[in-house]
């Protein structure tokens, strides 16, 4: 499509385009699955896309912005502005149901809300002794007999787990 032909594509169409952009670190997820795109609107002929970072230091943030720009320019959007929005802070609650399913099939255990310990730290300290038991199920064999190896995994959004049934290590997309 020639640039300039879609100057005012509907926001539904834009959301559709954005849903085709893979997350740079977990390519089975799209940016819309991840929930980082907070708003799409036209302002006097300029398309404004509002993006929120997952983690403050996530190196993928810059790549995400570049990918959005590249995609929308390829689709013919000429006037484009990206805005960063911190509030409300990104949460894994915004991961779409479809996204969670895709994560599991990709071998990454999706966030389990029930695993998030919301008790005050003081109440948790007494139980802090070594790798904790969890109800995170293994994305390969579905066993719940798993344990946390480390609170951080291969990217800021993941923790490292191990399945004690099939013995495979796996990434868990941490609740945030």
């Amino acid at each position: 499509m020639q640039p300039g032909n879609v100057k005012q594509a509907s926001t539904d169409t834009i959301w559709q385009w954005l849903s085709e952009i893979p997350d740079p670190e977990i390519p089975v997820l799209s940016l819309t699955d991840l929930g980082v795109i907070r708003d799409v609107r036209w302002e006097k002929g300029t398309l404004v896309v509002t993006v929120t970072p997952t983690y403050t230091g996530c190196p993928a943030t810059a790549v995400i912005n570049l990918d959005i720009e590249t995609k929308l320019r390829t689709c013919g959007v000429e006037d484009l502005r990206l805005e960063q929005k911190l509030s409300p802070p990104w949460t894994t609650d915004w991961l779409s149901a479809e996204g969670r399913e895709k994560l599991k099939n990709y071998g990454i255990a999706p966030p389990v809300d029930a695993v998030k310990d919301t008790r005050p730290l003081a109440d948790r300290i007494l139980q802090m002794t070594g790798a904790s038991k969890s109800s995170v199920s293994c994305p390969r064999c579905d066993s719940e007999n798993t344990e946390k190896i480390s609170q951080f995994g291969s990217t800021p959004c993941k923790a490292a787990y191990r399945c004690k049934s099939c013995l495979e290590p796996f990434d868990y997309f941490k609740c945030h």
Binding site: P53, T56, G57, S150, F152, A160
Partner: peptide, 20 residues
Amino acid sequence: LEEDIALANVALDLIGQSRL
């Protein structure tokens, strides 16, 4: 290795916060 990765991720968060 796990702690190496964890430390690098903590550092990343801290530097990200500092940038803001």
